[in-house]
Design a protein around this nucleic acid. Sequence first.
DNA 1: GGCCAGGGCAAAG
DNA 2: CTTTGCCATGGC
Length: 257
Amino acid sequence: MYITGGEFDPAKIAESGQCFRMSQEGTAFRVRAMGKSVTVRPVEGGNYILDCPPEDEPLWRVYFDLDTDYAAFAPDPCDGYLCRAREMARGVRILRQEPFETLITFILSQRKNIPAIRACVEKLCAALGEDGSFPSPESIAACGEAELRALGLGYRAPYVLGTARMAVSGELDLEALAALDDGDLEAALRQAPGVGVKVARCVMLFAYHRLDAFPVDVWIDRTLRLRYPDGFPLEKYPGCAGVMQQYLFYAAKRGCL
DNA sequence: GGCCAGGGCAAAG
DNA sequence: CTTTGCCATGGC
């Protein structure tokens, strides 16, 4: 499958901090998700080819959100900083990741940097996943807390365990949550242990594709205090505030505060 | 060794 | 409603 570059840049997506299982292999990138794998390799003219079985193409098209026009997500021209951040982050898209993986991953992301999250997720997959894929709710729920602590989860172990058990019991029906509006979805996710406002909004944005969700982590908080002391103008970006958040996050991580 | 990392939680003000 | 201390672990 051929993908036009510009508004699609796998290198930027890989370092955007929304996914943690996208690895660079030479000039190409490999993504594992949905129990499958795909390779994205650059071709002439800044464009890309997705290497996968033809029957999987629709799946990856959805995963990379390729049918959404990101050029339409334009910042207010008067906001010079946001415009610069957007140019810097051009090519980042909001992925449609699996809810369970996203939920667990962002629970264990708390007080970790991105390389540490990657390492932790890989460890979890190697220990509990089938054939290197992300572990099922059942395989995590079957663990003891000590077993998860041994994987380096630290104090997050009981959170991950409790959340997996809620998913298995049906107390937290991640499929059914897709029908809820943003407010109810956030509240439902927060019923899980280790899930506060920030993690809930990351899951809303990166799994349920709620583009209005605006997670505030330490980097965004820094940006807001420095650049938006009166608060970020969410009202200017109905339906895409989360995309702007991702641009701000990318710029901040690149040292552009 | 000190500091920080895509925070959550319970207790206290 | 907002603040505070604590929670494990690893990298720099």
